[in-house]
Amino acid sequence: NKFNKEQQWATYEILNLPNLNEEQRKAFIDSLKDDPSQSANLLAEAKKLNDAQA
Rank of each mutant, 00 (worst) to 15 (best):
D34F: 10
A40Y: 11
Q38E: 10
Q7D: 07
T11G: 05
S37E: 14
F3P: 15
S31E: 09
W9T: 07
E13T: 09
Y12T: 14
A44I: 13
K26L: 12
L43R: 03
S37I: 05
K33F: 15
F3Q: 06
Q8P: 03
T11A: 15
Q53K: 03
K5Y: 07
L17M: 15
Q53W: 06
P18D: 04
N1A: 02
K48M: 12
A46S: 02
F28V: 02
P18E: 09
E23D: 14
N41S: 13
S31I: 08
N4A: 05
L17W: 02
L43H: 03
L43I: 08
F28I: 05
K2H: 15
N41I: 14
Q24R: 01
L32Q: 02
Q38V: 06
L43P: 00
D34A: 14
F28G: 00
E23L: 09
N1K: 02
D30H: 10
Y12L: 13
N21Y: 13
N4K: 03
A40Q: 12
S31P: 02
A10Q: 04
I14H: 01
R25N: 01
L42P: 00
A27Q: 15
K5S: 12
L43N: 01
N16S: 12
K5T: 13
W9G: 04
N16Q: 07
A46G: 02
Q24V: 04
I29P: 00
A10S: 04
L32P: 00
L49W: 05
L15P: 01
L32H: 01
Q53Y: 08
K2T: 12
P36R: 02
I14R: 00
F28Y: 08
Q7K: 03
K48S: 08
K2E: 15
K48R: 13
S37Q: 10
L20I: 06
L20Y: 00
L32M: 07
F3V: 12
F28A: 03
L49R: 03
E45K: 08
L32G: 01
K5R: 04
L49N: 02
E13A: 08
P18S: 05
E13W: 07
N19Y: 15
E45D: 07
S39H: 15
Y12M: 14
K48I: 12
Q38R: 09
L17T: 00
K26Q: 13
Q7A: 10
Q7M: 14
T11Q: 15
L20H: 00
A40N: 10
